[in-house]
Amino acid sequence: MWSSIKHVIKPEHLDEALLLQKDPGTTLFSGGSYLVAYQDNTIHTLLDINHLLNDEIQSIGDDLLLGASCTLQQIVGMDGPLLDQAILASCPSKNIRNQRTIGGEIAQQRPDSDLLILLHAIQAKIKINSSEVLHPISEWKGKGIITQLIIPKNQAKLERVSVLDSAPAFVIVGVNQIDDSISVAIGGKSSRILSCTFSTLPDEVYIRRCMDTVKSIFSDDHFGSPDYKQHVVSKLLQEMVVTK
């Protein structure tokens, strides 16, 4: 552990964890892999919530239900090849996959997580705290503790653009198209994840118009200009979406 950490507390229940979390020098952790990677020196107290979460994996109907403390490695092989591909791309190291939890991966809200882009594209749902209410993952603002993830049946596609297979992608595009209904998620080295849904099949002109928003989430960096990234997203969408 690093020098600023003075306490590690195991709250007895989620409500206690939420209460303690209000202290700005406090942070939650389950697998802890991101925590260790970033070593934020403003943090003095760690709240270990791993024992408060479950790691059950269940198939109910067409849905896959995952407890928030499922490790990424536990999930590999549980759904389809696309979910596996997204997990492996998000976290190429098996050692870290054995530690990193699905709840933690979602909570980090990293736009360069292939897994998160896929979950946004397929409109996965989550449960927060002790509530049984399901929230679309794209609507979650980061408040509360994720306890469960529900992965619906999907026909998603995922494309990543990176300089290396092992490197985080600078553009990620996820598309889930079921008949005329399409949901799209876009991320990478971007300021946020862009999610949108279309209830009717959009034409190419409409998609091109949406690209203005895409440009706004990317900055000019050593991977290329926002124009370049917008162009790549646009081209990928044209490849991935079956249009009129």
Partner: peptide, 11 residues
């Protein structure tokens, strides 16, 4: 190494 990309066995 999350941003400085060296070739790994995967690549």
């Amino acid at each position: 190494f999350n941003s400085y990309h060296i070739y790994t066995a995967l690549d």
